[in-house]
Amino acid sequence: MEHYDLLVIGGGAAGIAAATAACGAGCASVAIVDRKPTLGGVLLQCTHRGFGNNLTGIEYARQLLKDLPPEVTLIFNTTVLSVEDTRVAHLSGGRRLSFSQLILATGCREIPMGALPIAGTRPKGVYTAGQMQEMMNLHGFVPEGPAVILGSGDLGLILANQLAQVGIPATLVEKQAHCGGLTRNRKCLGDSHVRLICGQTVTEVSGQKKLEACHLSGGDWIVCKTLLLAVGLRPERTLVSHLGNPIWLHLCGNCNTVHPMVEGVLSEAIQAGQTAWETMREHG
């Protein structure tokens, strides 16, 4: 069976930085597995500025990759299906890898419609925010307007910005009394296409085939063709949930805790890379 001293699952900001740090510390046998065809993770769908020194996510990913040593083995288009406590990872396509240390850098996933207490029909036109960001920025998809965006955190605001740029009117609906995101993302609120409603939530949707309207807790119906859910992210760590806390397992990035800023992801990832290498030297 193929063996690596360090296996990194996920090649987003966290996975890249962790692999780079482990190599820098002296680890010679490192592999990153990612289900996508390239490294970068969620950064690649971020065309907005706000990463590091006011870079776009794509530029930021390019910068991170400059430091990644070429000897790291990259395994793309491959999903890790399961991890055994005997330190074997099962990959899609039937491949298996053994490893000494494992870094989990699988990012997070969004909370979909079904998980929210939203009643009504189940029409087309409801998306999670990250899904829409990927569809727009990587595949050129343009959603039908008007749109309702549930959640006014950074992700919701970034989407409202983007919709405003293409002239699609959007209503941000926020449960809290105030808009949640960073000040720099709030500039869209000045746009005439963007409206913010605070202290309310979406309780019901209507439309048999396609979305027609959203009902708010305040009692109003808002006519819309698209509903975007930006209501939170959950760490993606089902792969290791059965493992307990073995010393060879290290979590970093959004699969550990959801980070608002990429800097937080990086410092955690560098730490994880170094710890993995130290544990490897001490315990094998």
Binding site: R109, P112, M113, A115, T128, G130, Q131, M135, H139, F141
Partner: peptide
Amino acid sequence: GPCQGSRCAFAIET
């Protein structure tokens, strides 16, 4: 599954 198609619906459509 838990993401309810938010990560695969577009890929399948393609």
